[in-house]
């Protein structure tokens, strides 16, 4: 138990970082109604770009910005494959993700991992987050990852809340809600879809950049299964907080909380002695289960709805016979 409590700040920090990625997944999966698998590649791209730029002496914020833009570029590719080339969104994402594996290796100088020289205090102090800052005796609270990433998350949620209340953001939401309606209202749904994919993957890459700082380096497989972790966070947040959190900003917050809970659970399972190699299987099973619940629920409720639809049909039939009579 003591071990678990000691590991808790680390789990929460990681959860917060993955939470930013999950907010990116929320934009595509929930708002645009697209399952975008690009994220498995673009998460690593963000880390790779950051580590290489930061390592060559580029300013931290510039490196993070470039990582964000690199993610947006990945989203653009998927978006164009989907809209301009007519490839189903899920396949477009898989194609980009596969291609990104080579690109990520190339960015990392053809090596499977690259590290940040965190043993050098000068380098360490330039970082925004690091697991070394978890040590509260050596570092002040305002450097603590939970505090820093927490503030970062709050800023991202605030910006997204603002954006989705604007004309363009509303157009994006309309596209995800009903494409026919969106086009009838003059929205170019291809543009909004590409934009959403770019924004989403930008955030995912930004999270990748944060994680590479936190863990002191980037590794080529870091994003494997990211989409599933993102979905886990979205679903956990929704199941637990959907009824309480109505406001859009709070919905985004619930995604972040979902990611934190996910990492706490993972931490607990590891402490209980699970071989870490089984983590991905565990995640897949849990997410699979949670994705099934709405379907099963729907099946149960559809039986109830069927009765109601029959009622409506009867009204409709009445209406038609009424029309006959009048004719």
């Amino acid at each position: 138990m003591a071990n678990f409590l000691n590991a808790l700040p680390g789990a929460v920090s990681q959860g917060l970082i993955w939470g930013i990625m999950a907010i990116g997944v929320y934009i595509t999966y929930k708002i645009l109604d697209i399952a975008d698998l690009t994220v498995d590649g673009s998460f690593c791209t963000g880390g790779a770009v950051f580590v290489m730029l930061f390592g060559s002496g580029v300013n931290l914020w510039v490196a993070m910005l470039v990582a964000f833009l690199a993610g947006m570029l990945a989203g653009l590719v998927t978006g164009l494959l989907h809209t301009a080339c007519g490839i189903p969104a899920i396949l477009a994402g898989i194609l980009t993700q596969l291609g990104l594996y080579s690109i990520n290796l190339a960015i990392m100088d053809m090596r499977a991992s690259q590290s940040i020289a965190v043993t050098d205090n000068g380098v360490l102090n330039r970082l925004l987050v690091s697991l070394r800052f978890l040590n509260t005796e050596k570092f002040p609270f305002y450097r603590h990852p939970i505090f820093v990433v927490g503030v970062f998350t709050a800023a991202i949620i605030a910006i997204l809340y603002w954006f989705f209340g604007r004309e363009l953001g509303a157009a994006l939401r309309a596209t995800g809600s009903n494409q026919n309606m969106a086009r009838a209202q003059g929205i170019n749904t291809n543009v909004t879809k590409v934009l959403g994919l770019m924004l989403s993957n930008g955030l995912v890459a930004l999270a990748g950049a944060l994680l590479s700082q936190y863990s002191g380096g980037n590794e080529i497989n870091v994003g494997r299964g990211a989409i599933v972790i993102g979905l886990a966070a979205v679903i956990i947040g929704e199941v637990l907080l959907d009824k309480v959190f109505r406001n859009f900003a709070l919905k985004l917050l619930s995604v972040s909380i979902g990611a934190i809970l996910y990492y706490i659970v993972i931490q607990a399972v590891l402490q209980m002695g699970l071989n870490p190699n089984y983590l991905k299987l565990l995640t897949a099973v849990v997410v699979g289960l949670f994705l099934s619940i709405p379907y099963w629920k729907g099946k149960y409720f559809r039986g109830y709805k069927k009765m109601r639809t029959v009622g409506i049909n009867m009204v409709k039939i009445d209406g038609e016979t009424g029309g006959d009579d009048r004719a």
């Binding site: 954006f163 209340g165 604007r166 004309e167 363009l168 509303a170 157009a171 209202q185 003059g186 929205i187």
Partner: peptide, 12 residues
């Protein structure tokens, strides 16, 4: 906003 350019003005 049908037929207008949609930018960063308030959605409503």
């Amino acid at each position: 906003r049908r037929g207008q350019r949609r930018g960063l003005r308030p959605g409503i």
